[in-house]
């Protein structure tokens, strides 16, 4: 039986079938990789680059970073504060969801892309208080069209490399910054 199948696979028709099967497996794998690597759908295809280039400060839309753990995502009314003064807001197709959100009083459901796992307790405030700027971790937002294009992979080794550097020569700070319980609890 197996010999018969093998013989058929060696025939011209069998070889074509083999190639098709291999192509199918590769394409499914490629689709799977593309699916997990693609950025999440946002309510508006928000160009960070354009806002940063127009000198909008990060903390204007994400003021929580200065105060506590989460930097926060802006509400439609925050967007509207500037955008109602721009004529393009009324005509742009891209800004349709913003007009709808304002008209209906519904939220814009942004999907955060710079996230750490649940077992990491991250707090923005001490990092800003230590003199870090947003670009240190989130990449050069002024030159990235989207936030998810940040080339920096946010993993523990990268966190610790900075913590080591900042606490070098200060045993008290070293204790705090290299402690498991600072981030994991």
């Amino acid at each position: 039986m197996i010999q018969k199948v093998f013989k058929w696979l060696m025939s011209p028709l069998g070889r074509v079938a083999l190639v098709i099967a291999a192509l199918a497996i590769v394409s499914v794998a490629m689709w799977g990789i593309a699916y997990v690597q693609s950025p999440p759908a946002q309510p508006i295809d928000f160009p960070h680059q354009r806002h940063a280039a127009n000198q909008v400060q990060c903390l204007y839309c994400h003021p929580g970073a200065n105060r506590g753990a989460s930097s926060g995502l802006p509400t439609p009314s925050k967007c509207w504060g500037c955008h109602q003064q721009l004529s393009i807001t009324q005509t742009s197709k891209l800004l349709g969801p913003l007009r709808d959100a304002i008209a209906n009083g519904t939220p814009l459901q942004w999907v955060p892309v710079a996230q750490v796992p649940d077992f990491v307790q991250y707090n923005h405030r001490p990092h800003l208080a230590a003199g870090l700027s947003c670009e240190n971790c989130h990449g050069d937002v002024a030159s990235l069209l989207h936030a998810y294009e940040n080339p920096q992979v946010m993993n523990m080794g990268w966190c610790l490399a900075c913590h080591r550097e900042k606490s070098a020569g200060n045993p008290e700070l070293e204790k705090k910054l290299l402690d498991c319980a600072t981030c994991h609890y």
């Binding site: 796992p117 077992f119 204790k175 705090k176 290299l178 402690d179 498991c180 319980a181 600072t182 994991h184 609890y185």
Partner: peptide, 16 residues
């Protein structure tokens, strides 16, 4: 499960 150097409590690191 390690001893926190800064808070001196016994911590459980769940991801480890």
């Amino acid at each position: 499960t390690v001893h926190s150097q800064s808070e001196q409590v016994n911590v459980q690191v769940y991801n480890r």
